[in-house]
Design a protein around this nucleic acid. Sequence first.
DNA 1: CCAAGTACTTGGCCATACATAGTACTTCCT
DNA 2: AGGAAGTACTATGTATGGCCAAGTACTTGG
Lengths: 113, 113
Amino acid sequence: MNLENTQVQMRKGILEYCILHIISRGEVYASDMLDELTNARMIVVEGTLYPLLTRLKNSGLVEYKWVESKSGPPRKYYKLTDMGSSFLAGLTETWNELVHSTASITKRSQTPA
Amino acid sequence: MNLENTQVQMRKGILEYCILHIISRGEVYASDMLDELTNARMIVVEGTLYPLLTRLKNSGLVEYKWVESKSGPPRKYYKLTDMGSSFLAGLTETWNELVHSTASITKRSQTPA
DNA sequence: CCAAGTACTTGGCCATACATAGTACTTCCT
DNA sequence: AGGAAGTACTATGTATGGCCAAGTACTTGG
């Protein structure tokens, strides 16, 4: 039980939410997502992202099409399905509630009334 | 892959943060914590809380003393150790960063500049 | 003496994040 | 043409934590 590990645990589930959000803004492929996540200081590695995308695809939340690249192998460009959109809406609500609940606990003063 | 499950995954690690926060405000026992978490709409069940408290204790982040009760068996009253306090400080930073990172992804408009 | 309530414990299940290694395709350099 | 380097994706195994469900132990009241 150390800080680093807890950081990892805190990320669980949130990543899925962030990925869906990124995909919801337009068609992207894996490296695009990695860049954006890194920019937001949400560190993710390939070994986490690719399996997650596969899960999202198998669940019918996202779909992709192959697009040839001028530099390297073809890429999978992802976009949300209708199901993915409503799932994202549900996740957004869940996340907001969670943040709110956490705030209501952590913001309370040392000696509650 | 359903909403309920993702909700569970999102909770990971966050619970630990909330529990430590509650304990940091004064000596409490398990049912006190359950009440407070429930009030904050952070639903938790016994089977989650007790093992977590055991982990925190084994890691030296919290300690407890037995206190007899007038109605039922004795209770374990928990409080933070020094190590627990600094761990909580670290967790607070981690959580704030995570919320910030998530916000910077989700708040971005549909068509970034 | 047994039933009910309270407090805590334990074992097994599941899903995710990560490390690591591997495959396949393209381009560049010699 | 052939090999190295780079890019994109895949596969496998490990660890952790939340949850369900069943169980133990102590106290009080009929």
